[in-house]
Amino acid sequence: MARPEPKRHTEVERARAVRGQSRRRSLDPMVAERVEQALARLRDDGRLAGERGRRLSVRVDPGLVAAAAERIGTENPTDIIESALALLASPDPFVHWLLTTGDRLPEDFELAI
């Protein structure tokens, strides 16, 4: 008798799982939403492979890992690294706009009220 294939989780499901944990334990409730949006942008751009197939082995300062774990709301090293990489690979477009415009609106900007 053949064994059933184990269910593979998508990035969105993993991001939602991280978000759920983050909202329970994170000091910063915006972190999980930012991670989920970053993963969604990367997925929409076709930059994600759809599975956790790459294995990394790194040495990292324990304080850095602890701080990231606290912000993300999980102790799972895979989720910590995946979240950090997603935020680095797909930064918030508003932050990019704000930094590149010198914190100023264009001269012809009109507020649509």
Rank of each mutant, 00 (worst) to 15 (best):
8 R>C: 06
35 V>N: 03
3 R>E: 03
28 D>P: 03
5 E>R: 05
46 G>L: 08
24 R>V: 14
71 R>A: 15
45 D>C: 09
22 S>M: 09
32 A>L: 05
39 L>M: 14
20 G>I: 03
60 V>S: 07
51 E>I: 04
56 L>E: 07
46 G>K: 05
40 A>C: 01
4 P>W: 04
14 R>E: 08
74 T>D: 02
75 E>S: 15
33 E>M: 11
69 A>G: 13
27 L>G: 15
24 R>E: 15
51 E>V: 04
26 S>T: 06
13 E>R: 00
12 V>F: 07
71 R>H: 10
18 V>S: 04
70 E>N: 04
25 R>D: 11
40 A>N: 09
37 Q>Y: 02
52 R>F: 08
44 D>A: 14
37 Q>N: 13
39 L>A: 14
18 V>W: 00
6 P>H: 06
79 D>W: 03
60 V>M: 14
34 R>I: 05
5 E>L: 03
8 R>L: 15
14 R>Y: 02
75 E>M: 08
73 G>S: 09
54 R>G: 00
27 L>Y: 00
53 G>V: 11
25 R>W: 11
67 A>C: 01
65 V>T: 10
40 A>R: 13
43 R>F: 10
29 P>L: 09
31 V>H: 01
52 R>C: 12
79 D>S: 14
42 L>S: 02
75 E>P: 00
79 D>A: 12
11 E>W: 09
68 A>W: 08
